[in-house]
Simulated scan of single mutants.
Amino acid sequence: MDNALTKLGSAWISKKAKAEISHITDDLSSLSNTVEEKAKLFINKLKGKSQKVLPDLLREYNLPPGLFPRNITCYEFDVLRGKLVVYLSSPCEVCFKDSSIVRYANRIKGTLSKGKLTVIDGMKTKVLVWVKVTSVAVESYKSDKVWFTTTAGVKKSRPKNAYEMPREAILVQEF
């Protein structure tokens, strides 16, 4: 009996230790990514390359400037390939003026072109249940709608003015 309890206790402690190590590893990875991105920004500033703020970049590509939360840590944009990567310190969600909710991972990737952010990874929206957003589009410069397309094949229009200002995000435990 003592032997069985010892094995059970060891298994439980081992499981808890693995979970803690996993959390520590995730935290270190997130910190490492943030430090790396901040270092890139710092080096680019030293070289004289200043980067636009993300809302201005989105506005330039005819997307609402408040599509991402206010508390991004940094972003990368490869103009030639149109690759956009936005970094956040942790997963979070934002409730917009139209009561829509968007959830963001630590890192959101997508391809940015005029009026579209496609091949998105790291963004979800609530349509009865949480579904991944695959693209966000504005049909024309004068359009008052933003179209969210999800992996479930749902294409949902939302008022563009609900996304005009970056909003403060609420931290969530997981994406």
Rank of each mutant, 00 (worst) to 15 (best):
T25N: 10
F68H: 04
V35W: 01
R81N: 15
L112V: 02
S143K: 11
S140E: 15
Y61R: 07
V35H: 00
I101E: 09
K45W: 07
V136L: 15
A105V: 04
L63K: 09
E37V: 04
V79I: 13
S113I: 03
K114V: 10
W130R: 08
R103S: 12
P65K: 03
A152K: 15
S143T: 14
T150I: 11
V136K: 08
C92T: 09
L67V: 09
F77D: 04
V85F: 04
Y61T: 07
E93H: 05
R107C: 12
N62Q: 14
S135D: 12
D78I: 05
D26V: 06
R70P: 06
V133E: 11
S143L: 14
T134G: 08
I120W: 05
L84S: 09
T25K: 13
I101D: 02
S99Q: 12
P69G: 04
V79W: 00
K97A: 14
D121K: 14
Y141W: 08
S100I: 07
G110S: 13
E76Q: 13
K142N: 15
P64K: 05
L117F: 11
D56A: 08
S32D: 09
K142V: 15
N33A: 11
K114M: 11
V86A: 03
S89C: 03
V129D: 14
K132A: 15
E60N: 05
V133H: 12
R59M: 04
V85K: 14
V53F: 00
S143A: 15
D26P: 00
I108S: 02
S32A: 10
Y87P: 00
M123H: 08
V102E: 08
T118M: 09
G48Q: 09
K45H: 10
D26R: 14
G48F: 04
K38E: 12
V136P: 06
I72E: 03
Y61S: 07
V94Q: 03
V35R: 01
G48P: 03
L63F: 08
S30N: 09
I24M: 12
G110I: 02
A39F: 03
I24T: 10
C95T: 15
G110C: 11
L58S: 02
L112M: 03
R107N: 06
K145H: 10
N44V: 00
F96N: 07
T134D: 14
Y141G: 11
G66W: 00
K124D: 13
V138M: 12
Y87M: 12
V86T: 06
W147F: 15
L117N: 08
I120R: 07
E37S: 06
G82S: 08
L54I: 03
S50P: 00
C92I: 09
V53W: 00
I43F: 00
T73H: 05
S29L: 07
I43E: 00
K109G: 07
R70V: 11
G122D: 07
V133G: 12
C95Y: 02
S89Q: 04
D144G: 15
W130Y: 09
V136T: 13
T111Q: 14
G110V: 01
